[in-house]
Design a protein around this nucleic acid. Structure first.
Length: 166
DNA sequence: GCCAACGTTGGC
DNA sequence: GCCAACGTTGGC
């Protein structure tokens, strides 16, 4: 995989895929809430994408993992700049991190807002079966990252599969 | 529930 | 800095 590109400010939108277990927080939950802080991310690479690379307005495929069926359930949009994840300081939270400090928060997040719920989930087998999506990171075996970049044409292809304009 | 993949931790 | 052990993710 190519090395990450320089972290220059850019006005060009980027595209993402964000995973959530449907039991924990589904596209329906996001639709109900409208906007939500994407908290609980405890992987450095995923954090770095939010902290360094996301811009307000970026679109993201909303992926249900560990679901029946697993797949893309809709679209969300980055709705804030990065800021500190409050759950890292909450001793009652399962995301509490005793090694983080308020001076230098280890975990940051962005807000995501609801954009679109697909009528039907675009399932993982369908994604894998579509030759146009070849090379898409989420389809690579062993891929466990909960936040990853998506190429524009791949996002558009998934929207096409869902018969949605985006 | 199984297990492959892989990130993190900690002993040395 | 190596690497084994451990924990987590997530498809199946």
């Amino acid at each position: 995989m190519a090395k990450k590109m320089a972290k220059h400010q850019t006005k060009q939108l980027q595209y993402w895929l964000i995973k959530s277990e449907a039991d924990a927080y589904s596209i329906d939950d996001l639709q109900r809430d409208g906007v939500t802080p994407w908290d609980g991310v405890r992987n450095y690479q995923a954090r770095n994408y939010m902290r360094d690379d996301m811009r307000v307005g970026d679109l993201a495929l909303y992926y249900h993992s560990n679901a029946k069926p697993s797949g893309v359930a809709g679209i969300a949009r980055v709705a804030s700049k990065p800021y500190s994840d409050a759950t890292q300081f909450d001793k009652k939270s399962k995301y509490y991190d005793e090694k983080s400090s308020t001076d230098e928060p280890r975990w940051v997040l962005v807000d995501f807002e609801f954009v679109e719920k697909f009528d039907e989930i675009v399932g993982l087998p369908d994604l894998k079966a579509n030759p146009s999506l070849e090379g898409m990171l989420v389809l690579q075996r062993g891929q466990r990252l909960s936040i990853m970049p998506v190429e524009k044409q791949h996002l558009e292809e998934v929207c096409k599969m869902a018969q949605v304009a985006c």
